[in-house]
Simulated assay, not measured.
Amino acid sequence: MKKKPRGRVFLGCDNKPLSRQEIMDAVNKSGKFDTEFQGFTGTDGPLGKRMENSKTRADIGWEPKYPSFTEFLGVDS
């Protein structure tokens, strides 16, 4: 990071918001792991909440390397 925003937390995610459940479904679909995700053991919020990082991108000029998590995994969204 070129700017030095100390003491702040930034959300690093791509430009296509996914819920935690959709992320794990894509991981399972990718076949890149030997074991399949079975379920969450606990949550700090709803599994359907979609994350986005427009504030992070605006504040520090960060852009993700891949346009989407599903493209990173090589699966259709």
Results as ranks from 00 to 15, higher is better:
Phe10His: 11
Glu36Cys: 01
Glu71Ala: 09
Thr56Glu: 11
Ser30Met: 09
Lys3Met: 06
Glu36Lys: 14
Val27Phe: 09
Asn28His: 02
Met51Ser: 12
Cys13Gln: 02
Glu71Pro: 03
Arg50Leu: 12
Ile23Tyr: 03
Glu52His: 14
Phe69Ala: 02
Ile23Ser: 09
Lys65Val: 15
Lys2Trp: 02
Arg50Lys: 15
Ile23Thr: 10
Asp25Ser: 10
Ser19Phe: 01
Gln21Pro: 00
Leu47Ala: 13
Phe10Gly: 06
Lys29Tyr: 08
Thr70Met: 01
Gly74Ile: 01
Leu18Met: 15
Glu36His: 05
Ala58Ile: 00
Arg20Leu: 12
Asn15Ser: 09
Gly45Leu: 05
Ile60Leu: 12
Arg8Val: 06
Gly42Met: 04
Pro17Thr: 11
Ser19Met: 04
Arg6Leu: 08
Asp59Trp: 02
Asp59Gln: 11
Val9Ala: 08
Asp44Leu: 14
Phe40Asn: 09
Gly45Val: 02
Thr35His: 10
Met1Arg: 04
Ser30Gly: 12
Phe72Gln: 04
Asp76Val: 12
Gly31Asp: 01
Asn53Leu: 03
Arg8Asn: 06
Gly39Ala: 12
Phe40Thr: 07
Gly31Gln: 01
Gln38Asn: 11
Glu63Gln: 14
Gln21Thr: 11
Ser54Tyr: 11
Glu63Lys: 14
Glu36Val: 08
Val9Asn: 07
Lys49Pro: 00
Ile60Lys: 09
Lys2Thr: 05
Val9Trp: 07
Glu71Tyr: 04
Lys65Ala: 13
Asp76Cys: 02
Lys2Leu: 09
Tyr66Ser: 10
Trp62Gln: 07
Gly48Ile: 00
Pro64Glu: 08
Pro17Cys: 10
Leu73Glu: 09
Glu52Arg: 15
Arg50Ala: 12
Ser68Lys: 03
Leu47Trp: 00
Lys2Arg: 07
Val75Gly: 05
Tyr66Arg: 03
Pro46Asp: 15
Ile60Ala: 08
Val75Phe: 03
Lys2Gly: 03
Pro5Cys: 07
Asn15Trp: 06
Phe69Gln: 04
Met24Gly: 04
Gly31Arg: 03
Pro46Ser: 14
Gly7Pro: 01
Val9Ile: 12
Ser77Met: 10
Lys65Gln: 13
Gly45Tyr: 09
Pro46Lys: 12
Lys65Tyr: 14
Phe10Ala: 05
Asp34Val: 09
Gly45Lys: 08
Lys49Ile: 14
Phe69Thr: 02
Glu22Leu: 10
Lys65Phe: 13
Thr56Arg: 03
Pro67Met: 04
Met51Arg: 00
Lys2Ile: 04
Arg20Phe: 13
Lys16Gln: 15
Lys4Arg: 09
Gln38His: 02
Lys4Tyr: 01
Gly45Pro: 10
Ser68Gly: 03
Met1His: 06
Pro46Glu: 15
Glu52Asp: 12
Trp62Arg: 04
Gln21Gly: 11
Arg8Leu: 12
Asp44Pro: 00
Pro5Met: 06
Phe10Cys: 04
Lys3Tyr: 03
Glu63Trp: 01
Phe72Ala: 13
Ala26Asn: 15
Leu73Ile: 03
Pro5Glu: 07
Gln21Glu: 11
Asp25Arg: 03
Leu18Arg: 05
Asp34Pro: 13
Asn15Val: 05
Gly39Arg: 15
Gly61Phe: 01
Cys13Arg: 06
Asn28Lys: 15
Thr56Gly: 15
Met24Ala: 10
Pro46Met: 11
Ile23Lys: 03
Pro5His: 08
Phe72Asp: 00
Tyr66Thr: 08
Leu11Thr: 11
Arg50Glu: 14
Ala58Tyr: 00
Gly31Ala: 02
